[in-house]
Nucleic acid binder design. Structure first.
Lengths: 355, 355
DNA sequence: CCGGGGGATGGTAGCGATACCAATCTAGGG
DNA sequence: CCCTAGATTGGTATCGCTACCATCCCCCGG
C-alpha cells in the first residue's frame, strides 16, 4: 500500500505540485486551485496564506494537467502567407506570448494563396486538431481561405483586414484615419504636388489608405490633382510606380507609398535620379516595417502595434472558443487598435516653400 | 455507479480518445498507445488494424494528457535580444514548428545584453518553468547570459555561435568556409582590390568570417592588401565603414560586408557617390536576410537555413532534456548545417578586367 | 430558538494518456 | 518433454489539476 519513492520515473526532483502547496498552507488542493485561478469563495485570510505558500515553494501550475482537467488546451492555428518577414516576426512574438498566457498551443502553417494550397493547409490544420485560426494579412482577405476555414467549423480572427466581412472577428488599425493623418502631415509641411502609390488591390487596407489619402486632399481643397500609381506592396512594384511618378513634368514634391517596401523603392529610384531625399523629394511609407529604420534617410511612416494586434487576435480566439463552447457563438467582435505616426528623416518641407 | 452521459462538461462532441480507438480496433488502449508512439513489440497485423482504426476515427492524441502522463511537456525558452526582425521571424517559425512536433511549449523572452537585464530575463524564465533555452545570436555569445542560465541549471543550445564553448550544445553553419567561398567567388570574378567590413567583435562568427576571407586571399596570393574596416552589423556602422572604404585613392572593386545590413549600407553609400553597383562596384553580404532581395540590385550573399537551424536547436534541447533525465548529461553536441551562396545582381566582373 | 441561505472549504472522480508489471503465448535448447 | 527467453498484449495506477457535489459554519429572519 505504500509507494517507496514514487516509481522513480522522473527520478530527479519532481516539481512542486498543488498538493505540496496545499499541505504547506494547511488547506485542501481545491482551495489552492481556487486561489491560483482567481476563483471566488475564498476568504482573504486563506488567500493570503496560500499565495504565500505558492511564492515560498515557487509553485507554478502544470499546464498539461490543467488543460487536461479543464478540457482546455485547444490548439490555435496561425496561417500565414508571405507577409514581410519582419511583420511575421513581430506578429509571432505577440501571438505566441498570448498563446502561452492562455495555455494554448500555437500551430504554424504556411500557405500560398491558391485554392488548392489553401485547401491543403486547412486540411493539415484540421488534422492537427486546431480549433481556431489567426489570419494575418494578406491571407485575411482571401475569401477562399475563409470559406474553407468556415466549412471546417473553425473560429477565425482576421488581423489588419480593413473592412472585414461582418461575420468574422477582426483586429485592425484604422487605416483610413492613419492615411488621412499622414496626408495631413504632408500638407501641413507645405506640400502641394503629391504622389500616391496604391497598395495591392486585393487588400481592403489598400483601399482604406487610398480613401484616407483622398479625404485629406479634399478637405484641404485647392490642390493640383495628385498623381497616383498602382502598386502591389512589393519593392519591385514600388520601383515601377516611382519611375512613372518621377518622370512626368511637374515632379511631385512628396510621395506617399502605401507601404514601406514601396517607399524604399521610391527612395532608391530617387537616388538613381540624383534627387535627394528629403530635400528634393519627401517620401513616406506605411507599416513601420523593419526596413523603415534601416535605410537612409530613415522613413517617416505609420506604426502599427503588430505584436499587440496579434496578441489580441489570440485573446479573441481563445475567448470565442471557450465562451462559445456552451452557448451560441458570440457576436463577432471588431477591435480597433491605435496606430502612430513616426517621423524620421525622409520628410521635410518642400524646397519651393522654403524658397 | 453509472454516469448518465458524462458530466455534461464538454457538452458538445467529445473528441475521439484512445479508448474509442481501442474499442473500435478490438485491442487494449495500451496497444493503441504503442502503435501510435511507434513502440516495438506490436505484431504487424495488430499495427495495421489499429492504424486503420485511427484513420477511420480521425484520432489524434490529446497532447495535454500525453504530456501529463509521460511527465513531458516541458517548456522551452527562446531568449532573444535584437537580432534583425527577419532573422527572428524565420527563427521563430523553425523553432515553433519543432516545438509543436515535440509537444513542448515555447516561451519567448526578450532580453537586453546588460547583466541586470539578463538576470531578470533568466529569472522570468525560471519562474515560467522553463527547463531549456535556445539562444539565437547575438545572445549566444554572451558569457554573462550563459553563466546565468547555467547557474539556473538550464540546458542551452546556442545557434550560430561560430566558436561556442565546449560545454554548450550548438547549431551553426561553417562561417569560415562560407566566407572563404564567397571570397573565392569574388576572386574568380577577377576582383583584386578587395574591401572587407568586419562584423561585431563580440561575436565569434565575425572572426570566423574574417578568417575565411583572409584564408581565401592568402591562398590566391599575389594581391594588393585588402582594405579592412570594422563594422558592428548595423546599417549605420556599415555606412561609416563604406565611407572610409570608398574614400581612399585606389577604390576597391569589390566589398564584402560581414552581413547584409552593412552591405545594404555600402550600396546606399555607393549610390550617393554615383558609383553604380555592380558595374563600378561589386558588393556582397552575408546572411541572406530579408533586405538582400528587397533592394536594388539584389544582393549576392550567403544563405543560412535559419528555420532549420532553429528547429534543430529545439530538437537538441528536447533530446537533451528527455535523454539526460535519467543518466548523465550527454556530451554537448555541435551540429553544422549547410549554407549556400546566393548570386543576385550585386556582383559582377570588375570593369578593369573587362576593359 | 430553529430553519434556511449562502459563503467557504473539503472530498471524490475523472480528464486521456503512458509507465510499469503481470500474464500469455511462441519457439528453441537441453 | 520441460524450461527459459523473448515477443506480444492487457491491467492497473497514477500524472497534476479541476468540475461537481457534499459539508460545514455563521448569521439572519420568523
Amino acid at each position: 500500500m505504500n509507494k517507496p519513492a514514487r516509481k522513480s520515473r522522473s527520478g530527479a526532483r519532481r516539481s512542486v505540485t498543488i498538493k505540496d502547496v496545499a499541505r504547506y498552507a494547511g488547506v485542501s488542493p481545491m482551495t489552492v486551485s481556487r486561489v491560483v485561478n482567481g476563483g471566488q469563495y475564498v476568504s482573504d485570510a486563506t488567500r493570503q496564506t496560500v499565495m504565500q505558500a505558492v511564492r515560498q515553494l515557487g509553485y507554478s501550475p502544470n499546464l498539461a494537467a490543467r488543460n487536461l482537467a479543464s478540457a482546455r488546451g485547444e490548439r490555435m492555428g496561425l496561417l500565414y502567407g508571405n507577409p514581410s518577414a519582419s511583420y511575421l516576426s513581430e506578429f509571432l512574438v505577440g501571438a505566441l506570448d498570448a498563446a502561452t498566457r492562455h495555455g494554448v498551443q500555437l500551430v504554424l502553417e504556411k500557405c500560398e494563396m491558391t485554392p488548392a494550397a489553401s485547401r491543403r493547409a486547412v486540411r493539415r490544420l484540421v488534422a492537427g486538431g486546431v480549433v481556431g485560426v489567426v489570419l494575418p494579412p494578406p491571407l485575411c482577405e482571401s475569401a477562399v481561405i475563409r470559406a474553407e476555414l468556415q466549412a471546417a467549423r473553425m473560429r477565425i480572427v482576421a488581423v489588419a483586414a480593413a473592412r472585414p466581412p461582418a461575420d468574422v472577428m477582426c483586429v485592425s488599425i484604422d487605416d483610413f484615419a492613419a492615411a488621412r493623418e499622414m496626408t495631413r502631415y504632408l500638407l501641413a509641411l507645405g506640400h502641394t504636388r503629391l504622389g500616391f502609390i496604391k497598395g495591392h488591390p486585393n487588400q481592403t487596407a489598400s483601399e482604406e489608405r487610398w480613401r484616407g489619402f483622398t479625404a485629406a486632399v479634399q478637405e484641404h481643397g485647392n490642390l493640383p490633382t495628385p498623381r497616383v500609381e498602382q502598386g502591389f506592396f512589393t519593392f519591385r512594384s514600388g520601383l515601377d510606380a516611382a519611375r512613372k511618378l518621377l518622370s512626368g513634368a511637374p515632379l511631385p514634391s512628396a510621395i506617399f507609398a502605401s507601404n514601406d517596401d514601396m517607399a524604399a523603392a521610391v527612395m532608391a529610384e530617387a537616388h538613381r535620379r540624383a534627387l535627394e531625399v528629403p530635400n528634393d523629394l519627401t517620401v513616406v511609407g506605411f507599416d513601420d516595417s523593419l526596413i523603415a529604420a534601416n535605410i537612409w534617410p530613415g522613413l517617416t511612416t505609420i506604426h502599427q502595434p503588430i505584436a499587440q494586434m496579434a496578441g489580441e487576435a489570440v485573446d479573441l480566439l481563445v475567448a470565442s472558443v471557450r465562451g462559445g463552447k456552451r452557448g451560441a457563438a458570440a457576436e463577432p467582435v471588431h477591435r480597433l487598435v491605435a496606430h502612430e505616426l513616426i517621423t524620421r528623416e525622409s520628410a521635410a518641407r518642400p524646397k519651393s516653400a522654403a524658397a
